[in-house]
């Protein structure tokens, strides 16, 4: 699962998709996940680094993470071609 390469994300959590001109706002942890995805990290790696940083149960994080990915998909921010 890859985030679209040309997605731009700023430090303040502003996400711009140049393909369709849509803009989004994410909270800091959401921005962190997108940045990590952009560097090509796999889910396991992302999970590891966030689990080290935040106090959260693994089940909670997993549930929230996949909910978040679902939203990214819904907003066409995930590159579905590469996934296939």
């Amino acid at each position: 699962m890859k985030i679209n390469k040309n997605i731009a994300i700023s430090d303040s959590g502003f996400v711009f998709n140049p393909v369709n001109g849509e803009s989004f706002s994410v909270n800091p942890i959401g921005a962190e996940i997108i940045s990590l995805m952009k560097t090509g990290q796999a889910y396991d790696e992302i999970e590891q680094s966030l689990m080290n940083k935040y106090s959260v149960e693994i089940t909670t994080f997993e549930r929230d993470y996949f909910d978040f990915i679902g939203l990214l998909k819904q907003h066409n921010l995930i590159d579905t071609n590469e996934e296939a």
Partner: peptide, 22 residues
């Protein structure tokens, strides 16, 4: 010490609506 966790969230910026972030 680990940081306080908050679930990730993304919100589309609707140009017709004020957004609550900020």
């Amino acid at each position: 010490e680990k940081l306080r966790y908050e679930r990730p969230v993304i919100k589309k910026l609707e140009t017709g609506m004020p957004n609550k972030f900020g």
